[in-house]
């Protein structure tokens, strides 16, 4: 499979990276080189093989829902450019 410039622009949109025509052209070539390389996996017969989800068998640890960092909200927000009542203030993300 290979990608064209329009696909690269669509993927860049999904990845939230601004690309101009020049960057899209460059990336098309690079992405096709990488996709051409990974094409090799087509040779492998994976019938009946389980996909790996965890490389080492381990039980998922869950932490207790406690305040463990010293209850020092003022210190935590001290370096933030803008705060209000111990909250970080960020640009509006919900339109």
């Amino acid at each position: 499979m290979s990608v064209d410039t329009a696909t690269v622009k669509r993927v860049a949109k999904l990845a939230r990276i601004a690309v101009d025509d020049e960057a899209a052209d460059r990336m098309t070539g690079e992405l096709n080189a990488i996709l051409g390389f990974v094409e090799m996996l087509g040779e492998v017969d994976v019938a009946g093989v389980e996909p790996m989800t965890s490389v080492m068998p381990m039980e998922m640890k869950k932490r207790h829902d406690n305040v463990t960092d010293g209850d020092k909200a003022d210190d935590i927000v001290a370096n933030a450019p803008e705060t209000e009542r111990n909250f970080f203030l960020v640009p509006k993300v919900v339109e």
Partner: peptide
Amino acid sequence: KAQKVRTL
């Protein structure tokens, strides 16, 4: 597919 190859 890559995750399956990883199992192998």
